[in-house]
Design a protein around this nucleic acid. Structure first.
Ligand code: FES
Ligand code: FES
Lengths: 134, 134
DNA sequence: GGAAAATACGACCGATTTTATCCGATTTTA
DNA sequence: TAAAATCGGATAAAATCGGTCGTATTTTCC
């Protein structure tokens, strides 16, 4: 409950790795998966997502790999989450999917108060960058 | 992802209901489940947990039901979560279950940075009370 | 005393989500 | 041309969660 998904964890670990090494050095998914003991195929897909979101730059072919596309201080945690998960992290489903999704929407009395906590978390993800986790 | 469980939602809704009405009036699980359109059996189980944690007082038998055991301002959100969920809400499993649970524990580089966000959320749950959601 | 109404408790199923794997295709360099 | 890497979809395995059921116990009311 209230847990980050493995995909996001793996993504953050990978991004931290990129940020910790020289900018111009490409890293392959295999390297990272071995170094951090992460399932290779799964990490590969996460990196693809990050690549599509222009957070990292991909180079195909032999001697290919990935490099950060921006400075670590420019990459917000929220960017990473949005790139990997297609729906934003929400305390209650009603926020994410709208009134139709929740059967007790009209009778719900805690949606508004929960918003305070939600906002707080959002702000944190929006403020913190990869540079702060190196 | 990063979502509260239904059990906690239902628990909060029920507690808010208790806080909103007269202190000495007992409410049955059935009443609340009908009013807020919540599955009766599931809510009943949640209320049992809250009763065991001394957050609400139970009265058995016909004309029985539940009443708040303390003033709403004395009931913290974290108390409610702890009562309903046996393990605390944690961004990453490594916090909750210790080193043995996470295969990448030794290689993990994001555990410590994540702690900042974790602490922030914990503080919020520890500060906010039922009185603030009435 | 017995029936009804409520909580108490535990076991269980089913659906959904999440995690992980697999395979084939494409790109690029050696 | 072969090897090494990214791509992308499909699929399988696992875990979690919401919800249900059945039974026991307690208490009040008739
Ligand atoms: S829990 Fe869905 S609207 Fe509040
Ligand atoms: S993800 Fe488990 S230790 Fe970091």
């Amino acid at each position: 409950m209230l847990r980050l998904s493995k995909r996001v964890e793996y993504g953050l670990i990978a991004l931290r790795h990129f940020a910790a090494i020289n900018d111009s050095t490409v890293c392959t998914a295999k390297e990272i998966s071995q170094k951090y003991n992460i399932p290779h195929e799964l990490l590969a897909k996460v990196l693809q997502k990050l690549s599509q979101a222009r957070i990292i730059q991909s180079y195909q072919g032999v001697r290919g790999g990935y490099v950060l596309a921006h400075a670590p201080s420019k990459i917000k945690i929220s960017d990473v989450i949005n790139a990997i998960e297609h729906e934003k992290p929400m305390l209650a489903e009603c926020y994410a999917d709208g009134p139709a999704s929740c059967i007790i929407f009209d009778d719900c009395t805690i949606r508004r108060p929960l918003g305070k906590i939600q906002k707080n978390i959002n702000d944190f993800f929006h403020t913190m960058t990869i540079a702060e986790i190196v």
